[in-house]
């Protein structure tokens, strides 16, 4: 059964149709990449799936449960995590405190409000394990605002992973990175999301083809094509609408 299914999703912004009847499904552990030119509605799609704002019509189901009326925090608690296109972290807090925010959320917030999380060995160990995974353990006490850009992106992923999600929405994980940083980031994403379903918005075709099991092409609010990478490469409509202009 699909872990995420999006049916007939439509979004109007004061008369302007940004998404028109978008349909797709993501299976457990599957990596679906969504590509399309700027303004195609990709980030809007993420905002609706993650609950930032409601759809005009249509349905989002996560693990079989209808999500439409749930607030973002309720969706996150059910195992749907999202990372942001522009790094969206807690700038003046340390790397460790940032990851802690995800780990604490995972472990349940209702209890131990007056306990000191940084004295809880299990919590700190869980944070360290994640920092190890994303290669930031040596920077755990550094404030985020002092990190290099690539490191902030890695932390962004780490905070998202700390939720131990079953589905991650990755919004342009390599945006603004150099060639080499992009390759390292791609390898890291591949490694840490092995057992997690992902929806990835990405412009860099090398990243898309090395991560995605399937690719959906979003073009001005409509899914133009959806299929295995090889199929998409061959699809004439996609070539015309998108790939062509990228390669030229």
């Amino acid at each position: 059964m699909a872990i995420l299914s999006v049916k007939e999703l439509t979004k109007d912004f004061s008369g302007l149709r940004v998404l028109i009847g978008v349909d797709f499904e993501v299976g457990p552990q599957e990596k679906l990449a969504i590509i399309g030119p700027n303004g195609a509605g990709k980030t809007t799609l993420f905002n609706i799936v993650s609950g930032k704002f409601p759809a005009t019509s249509g349905e989002v189901r996560f693990k079989g449960e209808a999500m439409n009326s749930l607030a973002p925090h309720a969706r996150a608690r059910r195992g749907m995590a999202r990372s942001f296109q522009i790094t969206n972290l807690f700038q003046r807090l340390s790397v460790l405190e940032n990851v802690l925010s995800g780990v604490r959320s995972r472990q349940g917030l209702r209890h131990h409000l007056l306990k000191e999380p940084l004295r809880d060995r299990e919590l700190v160990a869980a944070c360290d394990a994640i920092l190890e995974k994303v290669g930031l353990l040596h920077l755990r006490d550094t404030p985020v605002q002092e990190l290099a850009y690539g490191q902030q992106r890695a932390l962004e992923l780490g905070v998202t992973l700390a939720l131990e999600p079953e589905l991650i929405l990755l919004d342009e994980p390599t945006a603004g990175m150099s060639r080499q940083e992009t390759e390292e980031a791609t390898a890291m994403i591949k490694r840490v999301t092995e057992t997690i379903a992902c929806v990835i918005i990405e412009h860099d075709m090398n990243v898309v083809f090395s991560l995605a099991d399937r690719i959906a092409v979003l073009h001005y609010g409509v899914i133009l094509a959806c299929g295995a990478p090889a199929e998409i490469r061959r699809d004439q409509r996609v070539k015309d609408a998108y790939l062509g202009e990228e390669e030229s």
Partner: peptide, 29 residues
């Protein structure tokens, strides 16, 4: 004085720094 070190104190800091992100991390702000 000890409050900032507690879990609730940590949540308050998260609230100050970035309420939106906090919500997407599963906190009911």
């Amino acid at each position: 004085w000890r409050f900032t070190a507690t879990a609730m104190g940590h949540s308050v800091l998260l609230l100050r720094e970035n309420e939106e992100r906090m919500r997407f991390l599963g906190y009911n702000t």
